[in-house]
Design a binder for these strands. Structure first.
Lengths: 119, 119
DNA sequence: GTCGGACATTGACGAATGTCAATATCGACG
DNA sequence: CGTCGATATTGACATTCGTCAATGTCCGAC
């Protein structure tokens, strides 16, 4: 385990919490989960995530993603960094290209927290 | 049912879209859905929503909510307004008190969009 | 080794956000 | 009517955010 046992990452917190509608969310959990939602709460990042998730083999290269937007390359890079650092996207470099893929269970865990479906 | 040409609210858009992981989200849909996520992407608002949703009878009075936070009354009022205007909370005034409740299907629809469970 | 291309980082800037103090509104009850 | 209590609105402020231009880094090819 690379992480300390005391502090949980946002994705870990999501996986361990009762659904929003089940019991009041603690202030502590809310503070840790909010960054995950913030990462999603941008139209460009939503589309990036959706593009990656629905892409062939579940992964996409930055070069593909850049072309899908009318934004500068650094801006896309910035958004990908936000998604990666929040734990939603995994990053892997192969040769000259960098590939992103959705971290497994990240979205389903988040959906379970929001929607209240049984894990 | 597929939607008309008229402008859709955020919640309506959520209900009509394929899951994020199923197909690339359109720029248009992303722009309309993002405010919903933004509304959720704040620790105070997450807790407010959770408090309301898990409260007895599924509704809570502002007076109860104020006491649960170390924030000024106008600040709570502001957050409730954001949640209400985004379509996540319904508002009803009875006598002197104002009650909020989670709009039905809002959270489950949102979860379906994120988590990709079959609709 | 050098060059070129893919991606990241930095710095700057306007726009949006969260918060509070002060004030307004609005209904219930003397 | 006048007041009081519950909630909303306004105005101000510091902080955060999204974006771009410029620049940096890393790697493969020649």
């Amino acid at each position: 385990m690379t992480k300390s046992l005391l502090r949980l990452t946002a994705v870990e917190t999501v996986a361990c919490c009762a659904p929003l509608t089940k019991e009041p969310l603690s202030a502590d959990a809310a503070e840790r989960i909010a960054p995950l939602l913030k990462a999603l709460a941008d139209p460009v990042r939503m589309r990036l995530l959706s593009l990656v998730a629905s892409h062939q083999d579940g992964e996409a290269c930055v070069c593909d993603l850049n072309d899908a937007f009318d934004l500068s390359q650094p801006t896309i890079s910035h958004h990908l960094k936000v998604l990666h650092e929040s734990g939603l996207l995994d990053r892997s470099k192969r040769g000259v290209w960098v590939y992103y893929r959705v971290r497994p269970t990240a979205l389903t865990d988040l959906a379970a927290l929001i929607g209240g479906v049984a894990g």
